[in-house]
Design a protein around this nucleic acid. Structure first.
Lengths: 336, 336
DNA sequence: ACCCATTTTTACAGCGCTGTAAGTTCACCG
DNA sequence: CGGTGAACTTACAGCGCTGTAAAAATGGGT
């Protein structure tokens, strides 16, 4: 089946190609009779516009990229879902790019060596520093997501990690917990996200008048429940005796739940546990997870707004926006 | 920064545009001195090929779509990851499309009203019947994924659901379980996937000489652990007393674990539980899940091979391929 | 019937690239 | 030193569509 082109429709309808284009786009100034004739030709031939020609002519692809570490991490999958939905409402498709958490790949994403694929990029870096980000070629609009410090020249949407971490610690302290551990700081160098959460963790302890004890910080691989279980398990076996855990994310929390259960420690009676991200499964595990929940819909909305403004030509300094978060209290660290 | 075009590079290097194109593509018959000169011009100008022009000229976009119900379901996220990886190895990007499990959207995916976005589609339908699929416009190559019966004219890659379900039941029977329930059949009409798994479940029971008891079939929403927990919980409260559960997928299994635990039933001592999909978190919950694992890498490989053959013009009858699966035995339904 | 202001339609050129086929240059042989 | 095939390079046309600006048609007065 040879592909039907705009001009084929035009020929059949006896109008110029541009008029067909106008009909396809619902342009107002087309006589009803003309529109009907063109529409009939479209239907008759089964014409479907080819976006490549269009995008070459308009300079827009109506596609955005969302770049983040790994689709298999529930938080990112859920984020992608929300953003794809919001992008769709604005007429854009979403292309997902996984960096695998590798600095190389993150760099490649910013300096893409092919143009014309997407109109803009939403990018959640893990390792790239703001200096590196600031040096990106700038051929294409970028909005940063997540917790990294962003350069002044680039838009950025995030939650207040420090405040959230403080809130978590205060919640645990209000439950009477005194030996509050932090589970899964990357080793040897924490990602920016972890760094901020650790700062908040420490601030929270200080605010509650609790000592900051480095031996209560468990290092481990991020984004992997089993790794968290092993890391925490080893720490517990080595004698660490926390009465609460601030976990870097829900996956770590799930691993922690296992490690605790395997040692006969009850949650929350013996050890209260909090997660981060409030993934869907947070309600399915037992006990269900108390967790920090970012306002994902708002995050998607703001990020897309900023990006679309850039695509429309806005060229000012970077905007840095904070979206809301909340502590969702569940069984693993219940309310007082 | 005005965009640099191929012709700009050609001008600077003093060659024809086509020669620049040849250099970009690593075409063999370019004199070294020419290549060097062109390369220098490319670097100097920071030229990056525009894929839109290329794809208009070649007729290829080097993008594939993967359409499935919902990114937030871990199995699909993990599937998307594997397929994206395999597609990348073949030089293709992957565009994800979520159907939301809606028949309407599934139909729209097949009869996309815009052309030229992707070169082919991998499609995991939930509700579309093979008749409907067979009637799709055929403008674009499609390979079906997953468990639906596919029309004879369309390629299809799947695992043997019936055999896998039989295997699960036999495993449970070998543990001495006699009252093996099935958790989460969609109500009122099961999806094709559920139907096949139910058939296998029944066959397995018969093969083991166990009675098929309809009251051991729990209906419920699919893809949602909490719904599974509620559905199973209600059934248990109503007096159902299984000693094993075949769960439709790992999410259902996780919900089931909760429902059982809340009622003081021990897994696997009182009730053995199996899942399906072997998602990453299957090892993180407690007890870890015995689950059916499809060979995802092989699935991705085969599906892409078939699709790329279609894109290359293959026009024969549909190929139907079965990829391997295995029963991964863990704590929730241990080996004998 | 004619003029003017709209409304509707069109011609044109070009977005950036590559396949084809037809040059042109080169190295080497007789 | 011409001839020859291989190695290299290019002209051309067109992939399918849309922005622009200008032309054509229409309608409403006078």
């Amino acid at each position: 089946m040879a592909n039907i082109r705009l001009s084929d429709v035009a020929k059949l309808a006896g109008v110029s190609p541009k008029t067909v284009s106008n009909v396809v786009h619902g342009y107002a100034h087309v006589r009803d009779t003309t529109r009907a004739r063109v529409q009939q030709a479209i239907d008759e031939l089964g014409y479907r516009p080819d976006v490549r020609g269009r995008s070459l002519a308009t300079g827009r692809t109506m596609m955005l990229a969302l770049a983040f570490p790994d689709l298999r991490i529930p938080y990112f999958a859920e984020l992608a879902h929300v953003i794809a939905e919001a992008a769709g409402e604005r007429g854009y498709r979403l292309l997902l790019e996984e960096s695998g958490g590798a600095r190389e790949v993150e760099r490649a994403i910013l300096s893409a060596d092919e143009a014309g694929i997407v109109d803009g990029v939403l990018f959640q870096p893990v390792w790239l520093t703001s200096t590196e980000i600031a040096q990106h070629r700038g051929d294409i609009p970028v909005v940063l997501l997540g917790e990294n410090t962003a350069p002044l020249t680039v838009d950025h949407v995030h939650i207040d990690n420090i405040a959230a971490a403080v809130q978590v610690v205060e919640h645990l302290a209000a439950l009477g917990r005194r030996r509050i551990a932090y589970v899964c700081a990357e080793h040897p160098r924490p990602s920016e996200t972890s760094r901020l959460r650790l700062i908040g963790y420490q601030q929270g302890l200080e605010a509650c008048g609790l000592p900051v004890d480095p031996s209560l910080i468990v290092s481990g691989t991020v984004g992997n429940a089993d790794a968290a279980r092993d890391a925490l398990g080893a720490a517990l076996d080595a004698g660490m005796a926390p009465d609460a855990l601030v976990c870097r994310d829900d996956l770590a929390a799930m691993g922690a739940l296992r490690a605790l259960a395997e040692r006969g420690l009850r949650v929350p009676e013996d050890v209260a546990v909090t997660g981060w991200d409030d993934i869907t499964l947070a309600t399915a595990v037992r006990p269900s997870l108390t967790s920090i929940r970012a306002d994902g819909r708002e995050l998607a909305r703001r990020a897309l707004d900023l990006l679309l403004e850039r695509i429309d030509g806005f060229d000012g300094l970077g905007r840095h926006e904070v979206v809301g978060h909340s502590l969702v209290v569940r069984e693993s660290a219940p309310g007082v």
